[in-house]
Write a protein that binds this DNA or RNA. Structure first.
Length: 271
DNA sequence: TTAATCACCTGAGGGC
DNA sequence: TGCCCTCAGGTGATTA
């Protein structure tokens, strides 16, 4: 289930394989995703060349001379570069075929992903324009969290998962960063000191950077551009360890539901 | 304006 | 073995 590190891993895997490749044809088998794949995407892409593959939040931006394709992997989406003759399977939604005999294939069983086309500035697209800073950028800091959290009653976990606050912090990394910071996930965003927000921002950066270095997180659905799983799961301290001893104090890790998401915390270490 | 909830979707896993 | 149910998750839309 792609979070920001998985998307970045996908970008790094795909970019060198598709940049500079000329698009010969586009096949859409099933337009039904979170939003329907736009009619005319085939016409917009065919004959073009991918100039660059960038990322903003969990969106991949495929730049061409005439516009950009925006792609979100959703919960279960994946991109692979394959020989153009590879037979399609049930959940293969789109193939972008290059003149060099390769193709970029988008697969998404749960169909939470999406594909868009824009001829304007992709960063100003309605889905990207109002997003918060990238977690690894200098714009994201404890000061930023403290400023936006002031006066807010919302629990800190859904607060840091809100893309308008900071992008790319999904459920797994929110659990891990809060545990590493010693902050209880239900604590109100407006009741956390500047010093603790500094710790939290540092831990969010650390956890996400580690996951990117490790190639993403392996859960049920994620494979990178080579079709191989990520390797971060073995380093998860708390996510998925409900009932097991806390690695710090040995107390059992509690599993609850907060804002409709599985939440893991240690009552002794987090407050 | 803020916070909570709903809706979308399907594979995996467990119980019977 | 097969059926049924529950769970998981990101995020925009809707509701309170």
């Amino acid at each position: 289930m792609p979070e920001l590190p998985e998307v970045e891993t996908t970008r790094r895997g795909v970019a060198p394989l598709v940049c500079g490749s000329n698009i010969e044809s586009v096949t859409i088998r099933n337009r039904r995703l979170r939003w329907p794949i736009p009619e005319g995407l085939e016409r917009s892409l065919t004959g073009n060349t991918f100039l660059a593959v960038e990322r903003r939040a969990k969106y991949l931006i495929f730049r061409t001379a005439s516009g950009c394709m925006l792609l979100h992997l959703g919960m279960s989406g994946s991109l692979r570069v394959l020989p153009a003759t590879t037979p399609a399977l049930k959940h293969d939604h789109a193939d972008i075929v290059f003149t060099n005999g390769q193709m970029l294939r988008f697969t998404d069983p749960r169909r939470f992903g999406s594909i868009h086309w824009t001829e304007g500035n992709p960063l100003a697209h309605q889905l990207l324009g109002k997003l918060g800073p990238e977690p690894l950028s200098d714009d994201f800091s404890g000061e930023h969290l403290a400023k936006l959290g002031a006066g807010r009653r919302i629990s800190v976990k859904p607060f840091i998962m809100d893309g308008h606050i900071v992008v790319g912090v999904g459920n797994i990394y929110a659990n891990e960063a809060l545990f590493a910071s010693g902050i209880h996930p239900t604590r109100s965003a407006g009741r956390i000191s500047a010093r603790r927000y500094d710790q939290l921002a540092t831990q969010i950066k650390r956890v996400i950077a580690m996951a990117i270095d490790a190639g993403g997180t392996t859960l049920k659905d994620f494979t990178n551009a080579d079709g191989n799983p990520g390797y971060f799961r073995i380093q998860l301290a708390i996510y998925g360890h409900g009932g097991e001893p806390c690695p710090n104090c040995g107390d059992p890790i509690k599993q609850t539901v907060l804002a409709q998401r599985s939440t893991f915390h240690c009552s002794r270490c987090q407050h």
